[in-house]
Computed example of a mutant assay.
Amino acid sequence: MNFSCLDSLNQSSNPSLHYAMKVLSMYEDIGSVEFLKEDPKLLGTDIVNKITVPQSRIFRTSGTSGVPQKVYHNEETITFAVEALLDRIGRENYSSFCCLPLNHVGGWMQVERAFRTGGSVLFGDYKDLAEVDMVKILKHRWISLVPTQLHVLLNSSLGLKNLRSSIGIFVGGAELPPAIEMKAREADIPLWPCYGMTETAGMITALDSDSFLDHGSGVGTCLSHSRIKIVEGRFSIQSKSLCYRFGESKIPKNDWYETQDLGTFEANIGFRITGRTDRCIITGGEMVSPQVVESFLRETSLVTDCMVVGEEDNHWGQRVTALIILKSNAKLDDLKKIARKSLTSIEYPKDWKVVEAIPISEMGKLKE
């Protein structure tokens, strides 16, 4: 098997390297692969004939809103996803420093891009970027991060140096908080904010780094293989890279796929993500956007991070609850006073919990 897309600088003991080698070997068998967390699984012919088309790649959703679902891609949808991104970035090959898990689309698609274009993938931990001088290594590579990882690296002088040396950094998986966006722009980091999902084999929109550094915001415009329409504030997607099956449901080609994502579109700006319907909190018969409350709390400069959730309540239906990581010299009472003055009575959290860590998955999704 040709493993040339796996960079020679990879350490032989790296688990991601072994994972990638197993999958590529399964590809040689022209098999369908299920991307499980610990190890990829080659599906038997009997199973493939019943539920998949040949050479399927089967991922799982993050499970943010319930039980993780299987998402079925094939050679065609993966190819469209790779080619559309290359069209946008204007390059013939793709090499990256991959620090996302390979059982997720965001990680594995980096291997697919390198494999199909003659590029290479170097695996590592995102924390390496804050601890090791990798400027020469990253000079011709892309990086993909989720906002929580970016937040950590922006607070490291070496992290900033390494990020600036890369071709660009795709940031997706969750909303990019305004404070992080501003800090990255001030540090001259070549961010490419993007939007996509497991069902579309990765990103379907992107904002280029030049536009980002020139004070552009949001997640840019659609890549060449996709379209988005907004119906009652919710994104619906039509994409050539859309999966052919989701859980037990087949997805017909060219169908509009309704998402849980809320957003807007403005000419000359592009798309913005404003939240998710499955995160909205219904309290006292009214709807609260946790993202609005979270953005406000972060902008007070009294918190390192936060998350707002709805907890079951016999009286309110759901109770707005804020999980807070306070900065070292900050006081919760001061935060409450500021929030009381600015948030509506419905938005103001009824419970405040100071925590040591926010429950975030490895892909930057909230574990509620």
Rank of each mutant, 00 (worst) to 15 (best):
F3R: 13
C5E: 14
S13C: 12
M21L: 05
M21H: 07
L24E: 10
S25M: 07
Y27T: 12
I30F: 13
V33Y: 00
P40K: 05
K50Q: 12
V53A: 09
V53F: 10
S56T: 10
I58Q: 11
S62P: 07
T64S: 15
T79I: 11
Y94W: 13
Y94R: 10
F97P: 03
F97A: 09
G107A: 07
M109N: 12
R113L: 11
G119E: 05
S120M: 13
L129G: 05
E131C: 10
E131R: 14
K136L: 11
R141E: 03
S144Q: 08
L150F: 04
V152N: 02
L154C: 01
N155F: 07
G159W: 00
N162A: 06
V171R: 00
L176M: 05
P190K: 03
P190D: 02
T198V: 13
A206I: 09
F212S: 01
G220R: 02
Y244P: 07
F246N: 08
E248S: 14
E248L: 14
P252L: 07
N254C: 10
T259E: 01
I269K: 13
F271A: 02
F296M: 07
L302V: 02
D305M: 05
C306V: 13
M307H: 09
V308M: 02
V309I: 15
V309A: 06
D313F: 04
G317N: 06
G317Y: 03
V320R: 00
L323E: 05
I324Y: 00
S328T: 14
A330P: 00
D334S: 15
S342R: 15
S342V: 15
I346G: 04
V354Y: 04
V355M: 08
A357Y: 06
P359W: 01
S361Q: 05
E362R: 07
M363P: 07
G364S: 05
G364K: 05
E368M: 08
